[in-house]
Amino acid sequence: MIKQKIKVMNSSGIHARPASVLVRTASRFKSDFHIHSHGYRINAKSILGVLTLAAEQGAELELELSGPDEQQAMEVIVELFKTGFGMEDEED
């Protein structure tokens, strides 16, 4: 199991579309993926779970990955956070 702290960078937080991207990406890996926030631990392959985190810009989260491809998954997911989930504009 590996863990890493990360900050939500994009201006609108992890709303529906970033959440959708995050869950879709996570589901491609075999590893279990959980996010810790404010004492909660949610299944990050669950769209409802990720969305109800209501993680806004600046929120500090801890990613937890566990499984055969955890290293590779962590790299891809961290990259997603850093690039603002590929959201070019934040109008919606």
């Binding site: 937080g13 709303h15 529906a16 969305l51 209501a54 806004e56």
Partner: peptide
């Protein structure tokens, strides 16, 4: 349970998803 969580979240971007849910 999920809808209530979305209702108490601050940003409108999260509340906007409530009708879909």
């Amino acid at each position: 349970k999920y809808i209530q969580k979305l209702e108490v979240s601050g940003s409108t971007l999260f509340k906007e998803r409530i009708p879909d849910v």
